[in-house]
Amino acid sequence: MNYLHVNGREIELDEDGFIIDPEEWTEEVARVFAANEGISDLTDEHWKIINYLHEYYAENQIAPMIRKLCKDTGFSLKRIYELFPSGPAKGACRIAGLPKPTGCV
């Protein structure tokens, strides 16, 4: 089993490094995930996307369409890729504490 170490706590991850229980997610968890992605400093822009994704998932149990993410947060697709170089599915969703999406992503 994989674990993410956050302030002495062990957060259980799946084989692909996504969180297993979204309830365990905190902002500190997001920071550690982000650091592992090579994003050392989470800006307000990052947080806007991370919080949107986390709340959307809590409500709908599914990741939003990228269209919806852009429309509701006001970011362009290009900007999202600049903020999360590994992309919305594997980068932003992982940091926001969503489980791994199924399908070819």
Partner: peptide, 11 residues
């Protein structure tokens, strides 16, 4: 195409 090009990678 592939659904991922609609859902995640429309670019």
């Amino acid at each position: 195409f592939n659904a991922r090009e609609i859902k995640y990678y429309p670019n």
